[in-house]
Design a protein around this nucleic acid. Sequence first.
DNA 1: TCTACACTTCGCCACATAACGAAATGAGGG
DNA 2: CCCTCATTTCGTTATGTGGCGAAGTGTAGA
Lengths: 124, 124
Amino acid sequence: MKIASIFKALADSSRVRALAALNDQPLCACQVVELLGLAPSTVSKHMSVLVQAGLVATTKKGRWVYYSQAADAGDQVRLVLRQLPALLEHEPQAQQDHAALAHILTMDPEVLCRLQNSRADGDV
Amino acid sequence: MKIASIFKALADSSRVRALAALNDQPLCACQVVELLGLAPSTVSKHMSVLVQAGLVATTKKGRWVYYSQAADAGDQVRLVLRQLPALLEHEPQAQQDHAALAHILTMDPEVLCRLQNSRADGDV
DNA sequence: TCTACACTTCGCCACATAACGAAATGAGGG
DNA sequence: CCCTCATTTCGTTATGTGGCGAAGTGTAGA
C-alpha cells in the first residue's frame, strides 16, 4: 500500500506538527528545530520521513534547506494535506504551535541558528 | 493530540485493511481473521487499537463480536472515515480485499469458524 | 584553499509494537 | 452445573522507531 507510508509518516505527532507548520509558508530546518524543541539530527530524520512519503518537498538555498508542503503531489497526498487543517482545528497543541511559529518567524534564520548554537555550547 | 491516536491506528496496513472492509457492512472477528490471514489474537489486538481510536465500534451478539465503523463518531473520526474510500481507490490491496471479502461473506460465520478451527488442528 | 557552519548520516540506546501460542474469559447449549 | 467454543488477555520474541551526540557533507565567504 502506498497510502501506508503516508499514514506512517503522520503517525508521529512531531511530524504532524512540522507538517502543519508548513501550511502557511516554507520553513528552514533550524526553524522547525526551534518549533519542536528537538535535536537537529532528530528533526532531519523526521523531515526525511515526510519527504519520503511525498508530503514535503525540499529546496536548497545556499547553506539552508527549506521545507515546504508538496505542491505537485499525487491525489492521495493532496487529499491528506487538504484535510489536515480541519483535523487539527481543535487540537490545543496545533494552536500553541501556531503562536510559537509567529514568534519564530519574526527572527532571521541567521539569528536563530546563532542562538541555537550558543545554547548548544556553554550556555544555559 | 487526540488526532495522534487516530493516525497511529491508521499506521498499520492490516488495520487500514480491516477498517476498509467494515465500510460496507459489519464483520465478526473470524471474518476479519479470514480476510487478513493473521492469528485471532493478533487480529483482536488490532481491532482494539481501532476501537481505542474511536474508529470502530463493537457489538456482542451471543458468542460473536461484530465490528463496525463508528457511527456516532466525533468530527475528526467522521472526516477520516469519509476520506478513506478515496484514499484507497487505487490501492491494489484494497481491491483484492474487496473481492476476497465478497467470497467470505457468502459463508455463515459458523461455517467459517469451524473451517478455521480445522485448519488450526491437524489439517493442512 | 581553508574555515565556518547548516544540515545530514551514523552509531547507539531505550522503548514501542506486531506477531504467535497458550491460557483465561464468558456466553449458549446439553 | 459442565462443556464447547468465539474471542480476549498474557507472556514472549523479533523487529521497528524516536531520541541524542559525534562525525561527515557540502556550500559560502575569508
